[in-house]
Amino acid sequence: MQRDPAAAGIHRHVVHGLQVASSIELADLARADPDATGIDVEIIEGDVPASLGEQAVIRDYWQAHADQLLFEAPGIARYLVSGGRSIRFEPSADEVRDDHAIRVYMLGTALGALLHQRGLFPLHAGGLATPSGAWLFTGHSGAGKSTLVAWLHRRFGWPILSDDVTVVEDAGGRLHARGGIPRLRLWRDALAAMSVPEDGLVRDLLRFDKFQLSLDSGYEGRIPVLGLVLLESVDDGESSLTRLRGHEALATVMGSVYRPEFAETWRPPGSLFLDGARIAAGMQILKFSRPRSLADYDRHLEPLIAGLVGTSIPRPGTAPADTNAATTG
């Protein structure tokens, strides 16, 4: 990279196992180990072109050409993601600078594009590092991913791997994940159910009733992945946990890919599907349905907890349970 990470004004962070050097502080990311060497990603403020030229592939809000992706968040900033190694941003000149909004798109769309440029496999899933390994949770917006991660974290003390995006990698035939962005974004009803006050919390940029809780530290290192849970909320009835196999399991993985439109831009044809098939075959895929209301939430989680850790619930530092024996379906 071109910049000296020790230079004044350069902030060092780590996310998804990548060492990041940034010209602006990214408070949402974990700080890098002071002894860490090397830089995987550089984030710098500077001039960003308005177009990638006539040969660019143009989509609704972004354009791509060769190893670059360009997009603009109107009134906030324009971003250029290049080669899986750099993100350049230019704040909008006609608006009052909003660093919080700049970071939201930096760590969302821009980082997602960079992960795909590097050939990684990001899932739109939160995750927890249990004593047995990592469990990931996916589902449509409003299915309760962040609420579930926060609830299990508070109940059992399991470290939060990621709130929204988790990168899964195949290392020698075994699936692993690394820590993502150490934060939680929770709706107002979830905060109330967990008796967390709203005072001092940052509101979500696009959703007024959602709040961001930054964590003191994220999960460090790499952890084996045990499974992916598809969350489904229903209006009434009892909770249930089922095992998905074959086409349903693969469809769950492929439907959880974060920003798949970016993957198709840089990956060889068919490679995303092949990687998804390997990932679906390498871990348990479950579906957990529960009532939409948070009333009696602990009771409704019982089938899920039994499926994750068995009939006995280990605390951090205790022997892992046999997770395979507890799943149903």
Rank of each mutant, 00 (worst) to 15 (best):
L111C: 08
G276V: 10
S86A: 13
S312V: 07
G139P: 05
E72M: 05
G173C: 13
V229C: 12
R290V: 06
L205S: 07
W135Q: 04
L175C: 07
E248C: 07
G112P: 01
R243Q: 11
T318L: 15
L201D: 14
V57S: 03
P320A: 09
L308R: 04
A150M: 04
P122V: 02
R299C: 13
V309T: 12
Q55C: 10
G227I: 04
A93Q: 12
A73M: 15
S23R: 07
R183S: 06
G83C: 12
E261S: 02
R290E: 14
A21V: 00
L26C: 07
Y258K: 03
P320Y: 15
P74F: 12
L69T: 05
W187G: 08
G282K: 00
D322G: 00
F156Q: 00
S256H: 08
N324P: 01
G310K: 04
L301C: 07
P49D: 11
F288G: 00
H65M: 13
L26E: 12
A6Q: 15
T37G: 13
A281K: 10
G172C: 15
V165R: 09
N324I: 04
R103F: 09
I87E: 07
A190F: 01
S217D: 04
A263E: 05
L230G: 06
K210V: 12
I102A: 09
T147Q: 03
R292M: 08
V48H: 09
V96T: 04
E90A: 01
R222Q: 14
L186V: 06
F208E: 14
R12G: 11
L69A: 12
K145M: 03
L228K: 07
P122K: 02
G38R: 15
A50Q: 14
E169G: 07
F121V: 00
S293E: 08
D170V: 10
G173A: 10
G126H: 09
L18M: 05
P5R: 13
M254Y: 12
M283G: 04
H100T: 06
A177H: 11
D189R: 14
L201Y: 14
V14H: 09
D275A: 15
T252R: 12
Y258N: 07
T323W: 13
L128K: 10
R97N: 00
D199S: 03
L107W: 03
W266A: 11
T166G: 09
G317Q: 12
R78H: 04
A27Q: 06
A150Q: 03
S132W: 02
S214Q: 15
A50E: 15
G53S: 06
A129Q: 01
T265R: 15
S214P: 08
I39Q: 15
D322V: 03
R183I: 06
T242N: 15
G75V: 04
V57Y: 13
S240T: 11
R299E: 15
Y79M: 13
K287A: 02
D236Q: 13
D170Q: 13
A319W: 15
L80E: 02
G282W: 00
Q2M: 10
G46N: 10
D67F: 09
R245Y: 13
R174M: 14
P269Q: 12
G127P: 02
Y79A: 02
D163V: 09
P269V: 09
R243C: 10
R59E: 06
L70N: 11
E45Y: 01
D236M: 03
P260L: 07
Y297A: 11
V149D: 00
S23Q: 11
A280G: 01
D67G: 05
F208G: 00
V309M: 10
